[in-house]
Structure formats: structure tokens, C-alpha cells
Amino acid sequence: MTAPRDSKAGMHPLARPLSGLSSPRAGLIALIVIAVLVVGGFALETVLSDGGLSKYPEVYGAYELLPLAAAAVAILLGWGLVWLISRPGDFYSRAAGDVTEGQDD
């Protein structure tokens, strides 16, 4: 176990049985399970495509691949976005302030 030594301390009683969930291994296992499900589902649909599993035949592309592509593209584009439009956290507050306290003229 590589979790911090005091990982059990202060935990909610209900969460104690689940304490292993945060280990990297648990994450990897979950990832593999999901991957298997995705691939399996894709395979199943390809095999049974005549069985009415395909939801809207006239929609282009593989329906089930869309999320993969979409999310991947989005996440990768996120890097570009961060590079392009992120600013230091105090960007706005560094400006003179949004509400100008006017001087008494």
C-alpha cells in the first residue's frame, strides 16, 4: 500500500471499506474494465447490427465512436485553449478594479 499512513484516520465510517479505491491500481482496473466494456459493446453491435441494436442507421459514422473521438479531441484542444486564453489567476483583480470609485469632482 502506497497510500498515506494516516489514510484511515479521520475517515467516515461508511467509507472505511472503500479505502482502497484511491489507489492507482484500482483506477487502472476500473479503466481496463471500462475499456473492455467499450470494445465489447462495439464488437457486439457489429455482430448484431441487423438485430436492431443500431439506433439510427441513417446517422453517419459509428455512433459509439463519437464519444471517444469527441472527448479526446475536446481534451486535447483544451491544451491549446489553456495556452491561448488562460491568464494568471489575479488577472482581473490586477486591473484597476471593475467598479471605479469616482472622485469627487
Binding site: 479503466l31 471500462i34 467499450v38 459493446g41 453491435e45 441494436l53 455512433y63 464519444p67 479526446a72 481534451i75
Partner: peptide
């Protein structure tokens, strides 16, 4: 079925990322 695939696919990408 479609919705589940959608979900799982996104989860996969999210997890991979």
C-alpha cells in the same frame, strides 16, 4: 444501448487522459 456506449466511451477517454 447507444447511450451506455456513449457514456462508457467518454469515461474511457476521460480515464485515459
Amino acid at each position: 444501448y447507444g447511450q451506455s456506449q456513449l457514456l462508457l466511451g467518454t469515461m474511457l477517454v476521460f480515464g485515459l487522459a
